[in-house]
Design a protein around this nucleic acid. Structure first.
Length: 352
DNA sequence: GACCCGTGGAG
DNA sequence: TCTCCAAGGGT
């Protein structure tokens, strides 16, 4: 490690670039409002940062608009029904985020008078807020000089310093570089500047070094190694699992769905009943019915396995009384309430 | 540290 | 088609 004195010139260059090129996002406060002394709403900063965990800005934008329109404040979100929040989150992925979002909203509303903590250590105690999100909220919403560390910052720091050690081992060193670069003035804008740079110019593949505002400071650019950094430890291959989903309706067209347990895959979400998926397929029906095989299959890839799902359908005279079953009336059912893999199953049924 | 947890876009 | 990967957190 070397050269860890504060680098005011470099962080200033990033802020200047950010002022000229910052992308508009619904949760951001624009330059005019910022000049008028308007601060970002901590609720909106928190909500956007949780949605942005491992998720692109393009995917988040519509969800953020729908959430803030439906629940404009943390108190209103805290008062929402669990199922409504899960349905609104459906399709965005990583559903533990939605469960923790609601937990966190209720802690803030019920125990903190609806006011978000303004310090990193206090934010870190809340459900769903880890080191990244605590630093993001503290810096962006409360102007505290905390250093955010995400995939963008890691990549930018690895390249600026031409660090060839693989992630995640070199994370502490990258953090030290990022901390040395964090300014005491406008730390929130600085954090967003580095992340914007990583998302638009200092990209994982074929970085646009020709238009980079800090090219003069980049050791990897000089060494010709920028596109190869950061190095990462190899990943494990994804196995394929198989499963059966049972799409049942009552005679009035109501759908027979199942609320999945809070822990584990798609936790807390509605889905089609059926046995757990595994590498050795289990086709045992979850309840009795005159099941008919549907042609075709659903293919879907999760974080750590591929899934091939076959479908069976039946019409039932009476709702089954199995654990977790929720019957949804025909006129209230929307595929959009379901996680993507379950939507795909419904779409395949509909196509038959 | 290892493992679990979604999804969609880019190349 | 396939791999990578994105503003991570929880256990």
């Amino acid at each position: 490690m070397r050269d860890l004195k504060p680098q005011a010139e470099l962080s200033q260059a990033l802020l200047t670039w950010y002022d000229a090129h910052a992308r508009e996002m619904p949760w951001r406060v624009g330059p005019a409002d910022r000049a008028a002394g308007i601060r970002p709403d901590p609720y909106q900063v928190w909500l956007s940062e949780v949605m942005l965990q491992q998720t692109t800005v393009a995917a988040v934008t519509d969800y953020f608009q729908r959430f803030t329109r439906r629940w404009p404040s943390v108190a209103e979100l805290a008062g929402a029904e669990d199922g409504d929040v899960m349905a609104e989150w459906a399709g965005l992925g990583y559903y533990a985020r939605a469960r923790n979002l609601l937990k966190c909203a209720r802690v803030v509303a019920d125990e903190l008078d609806g006011v978000f903590p303004d310090r990193y250590d206090d934010l870190l105690k809340l459900p769903g807020i880890g080191p990244y999100t605590a630093a993001a909220i503290a810096s962006i919403a409360f102007d505290r000089p905390e250093t955010v560390m995400d995939g963008n910052v890691e990549r930018v720091m690895a390249r600026l310093h031409d660090l060839h050690d693989p992630l995640p081992g070199c994370k502490p060193e990258l953090k030290a570089y990022a901390t040395a670069l964090t300014p005491t003035e406008r730390p929130g804008d600085y954090a967003q500047a580095v992340m914007d740079l990583g998302a638009t110019i200092c990209t994982p593949r074929s970085p646009a070094c020709g238009i980079c505002p800090v090219i003069e400071a980049c050791a990897a650019r000089r060494a010709g190694t920028a596109a190869d950094l950061p190095r990462k430890s190899p990943k494990k291959p994804k196995p394929t699992r198989y499963g059966y989903a049972y799409l049942a309706r009552l005679e009035d067209g109501a759908w027979v769905l199942e609320r999945r347990p809070d822990k584990g895959l798609l936790g807390g979400m509605l889905g089609w009943p059926g046995p757990d998926w595994s590498e050795a397929p289990d086709d045992a029906p979850p309840f009795a019915g005159a099941w008919i095989d549907l042609p075709g299959e659903v293919r879907h890839t999760f974080t750590h396995f591929h899934l091939i799902l076959r479908l069976r359908t039946a019409t039932l005279a009476h709702p089954p009384s199995a654990e977790g079953i929720e019957v949804v009336a025909k006129h209230r059912f929307r595929p959009g309430y379901l996680p993507t893999v379950m939507r795909k199953a419904h779409a395949l049924w509909q196509a038959q």
